[in-house]
């Protein structure tokens, strides 16, 4: 049984930023994003970090059964952990989760293929993430973890979904954008909202044929900050 873990940027991989069809565009053909049917659709059935809050209930048991039932030689289940790179704690929880799942998955060998999905100027998957060392702790268990440093990362399709690129760009420019807002005497209501605004702008400009990633970010962010102030506060112009 193959299990694919997508470990990446929370500004890209949260369900509200990316849909399952978009994810499938850069995953291998056999990959099938694992859905947790006991959650309602609106709650994000593929927000797998919920599996990490596994105190005293049967979510891992249910997930393990589902992973085993749904997978076959032709289909590999995919789990997505948007925050596992952001913190060592989350990475350790992923490792603990795999250990616990192992008890439900029986004596099957489980090879974990980690993918890191990052976006660098519309490029694709890059180097393995730094926190993978934590998975090495599982080496002596029944779960077999591949040598993570030598894993061949499958290149992503160049057809990267626009919303992912927009979110990546928005996430990368958030702090500068906030500084521009502060200079205008404002602070954004929330980082999520600011990211949404930036991402929307990026998507809009891309649709209009512009390439925001190639533009001078400072000037662009300055004008966006003006728009933000104008639109939401009515203070400019």
């Amino acid at each position: 049984m193959e299990l694919i873990l997508v470990i990446g940027d929370s500004s890209l991989l949260l369900p509200r930023y990316i849909t399952i069809p978009e994810l499938h565009e850069f995953l291998p053909e056999q990959a099938v994003v694992f859905e947790m049917p006991w959650y309602s659709r609106t709650a994000g059935r593929y927000y797998h970090e919920r599996l990490l809050e596994f105190e005293a209930d049967r979510r891992l048991e249910a997930a393990s059964l589902a992973l085993e039932v749904e997978s076959s030689g032709d289909h590999w289940p995919v789990l997505i952990f948007p925050s596992a790179l952001d913190s060592q704690v989350m990475a350790e929880r992923v490792a603990a989760m795999l250990r616990q799942m192992k008890t439900h998955l029986g004596s099957r060998r489980l090879t974990v293929h980690p993918y890191r999905v990052t976006m660098t100027d519309m490029a694709a998957i890059t180097e393995p993430p730094a926190h993978f060392a934590v998975f090495q702790t599982l080496r002596n268990e029944e779960i077999v973890i591949s040598d993570l440093s030598s894993i061949r990362l499958t290149p992503a399709s160049p057809n990267i979904p626009g919303s992912m690129a927009a979110n990546q760009w928005a996430s990368g420019n958030l702090s500068s954008f906030c500084k521009h807002l502060e200079r205008r005497g404002l602070s954004p209501e929330s980082h999520d909202r600011a990211i949404s605004l930036l991402a929307e702008r990026h998507a809009f400009m891309s649709k209009s044929g512009m390439r925001p990633s190639m533009m001078n970010p400072d000037k662009l962010l300055e004008s966006l900050a003006d728009i933000y102030v104008n639109k939401f506060c009515g203070l400019s112009g």
Binding site: M36, P37, W38, D57, R58, R59, E61, A62, A63, L65, A66, V69
Partner: peptide
């Protein structure tokens, strides 16, 4: 439904 039953 089976998974939901396990969860429950």
């Amino acid at each position: 439904t089976i998974y939901q039953c396990v969860y429950a």
